[in-house]
């Protein structure tokens, strides 16, 4: 009980810290750090998505960059057409480009969710290492598709010239954009908490630990896991849309398997199955990358050593280390 309490305090602290950094930066007129905070919030959001599948559903997806990238491309492509004044699709229905934020988000969630449903349907027939590898394979397929098809510039990617518009808000203002990302991050965490705490969440937890037991009480594990997988991809897809807006650029590199690995690192660094873990993981990763990268061009070597140390000696991630004891299983 005490430990649960500790973790709650810790979570509030984490959330407040992520809020404090950009506010401080704003006061000191250092807009760069606001962008960094937005990046942390967005990557954490991608991690929150993966955490739902990986942490709570036990589905180790090594292909979440596919959903991140698809979300990014959905938003990027629509906004590209809006800028050019061209149509995205003529047949069977006409779909125009759009620069309305909500439309872009909706498209990102829809596309990543739909693709996740197809990938999930096939992948969830497998388990264990097979699941890890088949999700990787699907992500690779989408990566090569994006790189070689000329329609949206292939590997060169698409530059976006304007931030989308959300009624009443100036999205091109760095601080406003951060607040939007931050709000979505907290909303996604809140949703995760609700999902995990619901009857559905109990079934998912049961599917993770023992599928046979779940079947024995008359619930088929497959649809439960598939639903969670699709939800997970949708959250990560939304993060992709925000990432593309932040960078003003979308390219196949956000579909690469390195990014799948990095999203996994966010989750594991923070602590698998911890609601606020991805924030800690993403923040730590970006700070490490930036700080070490400022000192030496061999930053990847030191990053690798630190990550290895965390896996070997800090089970349960940073939150596990601070709040004590791995979670109950």
């Amino acid at each position: 009980m005490l430990e649960m309490r500790n973790e709650t305090y810790l979570n509030v602290g984490i959330a407040l810290l992520l809020l404090a950094v950009p506010l401080g930066a704003w006061v000191m007129d250092e807009s760069y750090y606001i962008t960094v905070a937005s990046r942390v919030a967005i990557l954490a959001l991608a991690g929150v998505g993966l955490n739902l599948a990986l942490g709570f559903g036990g589905m180790v997806s090594f292909g979440h960059a596919a959903f991140f990238g698809l979300g990014g491309y959905a938003a990027g492509v629509l906004s590209h057409h809006a800028f050019e004044g061209s149509v995205f699709l003529n047949w069977p229905v006409t779909i125009d480009g759009s620069d309305a934020t909500l439309t872009l988000w909706f498209a990102a969630i829809l596309l990543s969710g739909a693709v996740a449903a197809i990938i999930g349907m096939i992948s969830l027939r497998t388990s264990g290492v097979y699941f890890i590898m088949i999700t990787l394979a699907f992500a690779q397929m989408i990566y090569y598709l994006a790189i070689s098809l000329p329609t949206y510039n292939g590997e060169d990617g698409l530059p976006l010239y304007l931030r989308s518009s959300l009624p009443g808000l100036d999205m091109s203002d760095d601080l406003t954009f951060f607040f939007v990302c931050y709000a979505l991050l907290l909303l996604a965490i809140f949703l995760s908490v609700r999902i995990v705490g619901s009857r559905f969440g109990a079934a998912l937890e049961c599917a993770r630990q023992n599928e046979t037991r779940l079947s024995a009480i008359g619930i088929a594990p497959y649809p439960v896991k598939l639903t969670a997988f699709v939800f997970s991809a949708m959250i990560t897809g939304l993060a992709g849309a925000l990432f593309v807006e932040l960078n003003g650029f979308v390219s196949p590199s956000i579909l690469s398997w390195h990014l799948s690995g990095e999203i996994m690192i966010f989750v594991i660094l923070g602590g698998v199955g911890r609601f606020y873990g991805p924030i800690v993981g993403a923040a730590l990763f970006i700070v490490l990358e930036t700080v070490i990268g400022g000192y030496t061009e061999r930053w990847q070597l030191f990053l690798g050593i630190i990550l290895l140390g965390v896996v070997l000696f800090a089970r349960g991630g940073v939150i596990g280390l601070l709040a004590g004891k791995a979670r109950h299983d």
Binding site: E155, D156, G157, P159, Y161, N247, G248, F249, S251, S253
Partner: peptide
């Protein structure tokens, strides 16, 4: 592809 990401803005 990196130049296209950085240069225009």
């Amino acid at each position: 592809n990196l130049a296209l990401a950085v240069v225009p803005s």
